[in-house]
C-alpha cells in the first residue's frame, strides 16, 4: 500500500501543473482530429498518430505529407529537421532523467515541448518521487492530446467552434515558464541568448526555417560564453 500512496502523491503533485496543457491539448487535439477528418482520414489515423508520434506540430505536417506522393526518405528527413529541437531537450534532461528506472524510456518517448517545459522547470516538492512526478506529467499530457484527437476525429463534423484564439494558451504557457525561470535566476544571459537569437533568426529566415539556424546560433553563443558563465554561478535549476 505504501507503494500506492507515493504514486498517488506524485500524481496529485503533477496534475495541477498539467491543467493549462489539458485546456491547450484538448483544444489543439480536437482541431487536429477535425483537420484529419476534413482531409478524409478515418478517426483511427489521428488517434494512432497522436499516440505514437506525439509531436503536435509534426502531426499537422504529417497530415499534409500523407496527401503527397510517397517519399519515405523525405518524410524522415523533414521529421528530423522539424523535431531537431528535441536534441536540446535531451541534453538538458540527461541528469534529471537519471535513476528513473524503466520509466525513463517513456519519459524520453513522451518528451513533447510542453512536458519538457514543465519537467525541466518545475521544482518537484519535497518528499515526492521525482521520476513518478515527471512520469505523470508526461502521461497526463499524452492522454490529453490523444483524447482531443479522438474527439476531433470521431465527432469533428458535429462540432462548431466559437473558441477562436484558444490556441494562445500554449503561447501563454511558454511565456509563463520563461518568466518563472527569469524570476528564479540571478543571471539571464542564457535566457536572453535563447530569445534574442531565436527572434533574430525568425525575422531573418522566416517561420518555416528558423529553428535550425536558431539552434546553431544558441549553441555557438553559449559555447563562446562558457568561460564567463562557468566562472559565475550557472544555477539554472
Amino acid at each position: 500500500m505504501k507503494n500506492n500512496n507515493h504514486l498517488r502523491a506524485a500524481f496529485r503533485a503533477a496534475f495541477p501543473h498539467t491543467i493549462p496543457i489539458m485546456a491547450g491539448f484538448l483544444f489543439l487535439g480536437i482541431a487536429y482530429g477535425i483537420f484529419m477528418n476534413s482531409l478524409g482520414f478515418s478517426a483511427i489515423f489521428p488517434i494512432l498518430m497522436s499516440m505514437l508520434i506525439f509531436a503536435g506540430s509534426m502531426e499537422f505536417v504529417a497530415a499534409n505529407l500523407l496527401l503527397l506522393a510517397f517519399n519515405p526518405v523525405q518524410a524522415l528527413l523533414l521529421t528530423l529537421m522539424v523535431n531537431a529541437r528535441h536534441l536540446f531537450y535531451g541534453i538538458s534532461m540527461l541528469d534529471k532523467f537519471k535513476g528513473t528506472g524503466k520509466k525513463k524510456n517513456y519519459l524520453i518517448f513522451g518528451m513533447c515541448d510542453e512536458s519538457f517545459a514543465i519537467n525541466s522547470s518545475v521544482k518537484v516538492p519535497e518528499g515526492i518521487d521525482k521520476g513518478w512526478f515527471m512520469f505523470f506529467v508526461t502521461l497526463l499530457n499524452h492522454s490529453y492530446w490523444v483524447t482531443g484527437s479522438a474527439i476531433g476525429g470521431l465527432f469533428g463534423s458535429m462540432i462548431t467552434f466559437s473558441t477562436e484564439g484558444l490556441e494562445f494558451v500554449m503561447t501563454a504557457l511558454f511565456v509563463v515558464i520563461f518568466t518563472e525561470q527569469w524570476m528564479s535566476q540571478k543571471r539571464h544571459l542564457s535566457a536572453l541568448t535563447g530569445i534574442g537569437i531565436s527572434a533574430a533568426c525568425l525575422i531573418l529566415f522566416g517561420g518555416e526555417r528558423f529553428i535550425i539556424p536558431a539552434m546553431l546560433g544558441i549553441l555557438g553563443v553559449l559555447t563562446l560564453m562558457r568561460k564567463p558563465l562557468e566562472k559565475g554561478e550557472v544555477s539554472t535549476a
Binding site: 529541437r85 536540446f88 531537450y89 541534453i91 538538458s92 534532461m93 540527461l94 541528469d95 515541448d113 519538457f116 517545459a117 525541466s120 522547470s121 500554449m170 503561447t171 511558454f174 511565456v175 515558464i177 520563461f178 525561470q181 535566476q185 539571464h188 542564457s190 535566457a191 536572453l192 541568448t193 535563447g194 530569445i195 534574442g196 531565436s198 527572434a199 525568425l202 517561420g207 518555416e208 528558423f210 529553428i211 536558431a214 539552434m215 544558441i218 549553441l219 553559449l222 559555447t223 562558457r226 558563465l229 562557468e230 550557472v234 539554472t236 535549476a237
Partner: peptide, 25 residues
C-alpha cells in the same frame, strides 16, 4: 564536461526558443 555545461545553460535558452516558436506564424 562540455555536455554537462550545455545541460545546465540550455534549458533557459530553449524555453526562449519555444516562446519565439509560438510566433512563427
Amino acid at each position: 564536461a562540455y555536455i554537462q555545461y550545455l545541460g545546465k545553460v540550455l534549458p533557459a535558452a530553449v524555453i526562449g526558443l519555444l516562446v519565439i516558436y509560438c510566433f512563427k506564424d
